[in-house]
């Protein structure tokens, strides 16, 4: 479903992504990990075209992301994305946040959009917060709303960019629970995260990145059994030791 082929990207002279290739099949959950600055966030932002790349090709459902002729808005509307800092729109109530793109992009009616939004809020356990504004919610609640907002577009894949790293520890699980449920429902997911417990539980594959390279791309069992590279071993021992 998602194909990444020999992608390279530079910020000026800085080489962020170096010849990255991987793929995610329908219904697969792939976790991307690695030290900070390794290019993992940049990689998933390339998948929905938020970050342009200079070399290689990415296709999502056989649509080429880098192609100038591609209607990026249309593509993005079917690839959900969840951000580290939630990025709910502060001037809209929770329910309006979920309704906005349904109405403006998918052309749903107010009533349809509202119904869908309420269903999703029920699913993430926040139906009683619908009328509140984002800043009145806790971080964990905001992130669950953000997931609901992405799901409202009926995406065929979801991208998560460090969805729990801006959260206080006690809120991490409420978000992970929602994500586990999604994975079990068969959603195609690319998740940048350091939550190795989550990875073990639901991931089909783990990608380990370092300095812009995809160093390791293995099934979850292989990765946690014996990572082939030394760098991945070091990373794992640091992450798992606490």
């Amino acid at each position: 479903m998602i194909e990444v082929k020999n992608v390279s990207k530079w910020y000026g002279a800085f080489h962020v992504l170096k010849d990255c290739s991987t793929s995610v099949a329908k219904g697969q959950v792939v976790v991307i990990c690695g030290p900070s600055g390794s290019g993992k966030s940049t990689l998933i932002k390339c998948v929905n075209g938020l970050e342009p790349f200079q070399k290689g090709a990415i296709t999502v459902n056989d649509i080429s992301v880098g192609d100038k002729a591609t209607n990026l808005s249309q593509l993005r509307s079917r690839v959900g994305m969840v951000f580290q800092n939630f990025e709910l729109f502060p001037h809209m109530s929770v329910i309006r946040n979920i309704m906005l793109a349904q109405i403006k992009v998918l052309g749903r009616s107010e009533a349809e959009a509202e119904e869908r939004a309420m269903k999703l809020l029920t699913r993430v356990g926040l139906v009683d917060q619908a009328a509140k504004y984002p800043a009145q919610l806790s971080g964990g609640q905001q992130q669950r709303v953000a997931i609901a907002r992405a799901l409202a577009m009926d995406p065929f894949a979801m991208l998560f960019d460090e969805p729990t790293s801006a959260l206080d520890p006690e809120m991490i699980n409420e978000v992970l629970d929602v994500m586990v449920a999604l994975a079990e429902d068969g959603m195609t997911m690319m998740v940048v995260t350091h939550e190795m417990g989550f990875a073990k539980k639901v991931a089909d594959r783990i990608i380990f990145m370092d300095e812009g390279h995809i160093v390791e791309d293995a099934t979850t069992e292989e990765f946690f059994g014996t990572p082939r590279s030394e760098r991945a071993q070091m990373f794992l021992s640091k992450i798992l030791s606490h």
């Binding site: 932002k45 929905n48 938020l50 990026l72 808005s73 249309q74 593509l75 993005r76 509307s77 079917r78 690839v79 959900g80 994305m81 951000f83 580290q84 800092n85 990025e87 709910l88 729109f89 502060p90 001037h91 906005l100 793109a101 403006k104 992009v105 998918l106 953000a146 907002r149 992405a150 577009m153 991208l159």
Partner: peptide
């Protein structure tokens, strides 16, 4: 924050819509 622009684009809004519904009102 630049994330707001990205989040709005990621939902499939066009640049015009991003400005109209998110950046300008805020």
């Amino acid at each position: 924050r630049s994330g707001q622009r990205q989040a709005a684009l990621a939902m499939g809004l066009t640049l015009t819509q991003v400005y109209r519904y998110v950046l300008v009102p805020v």
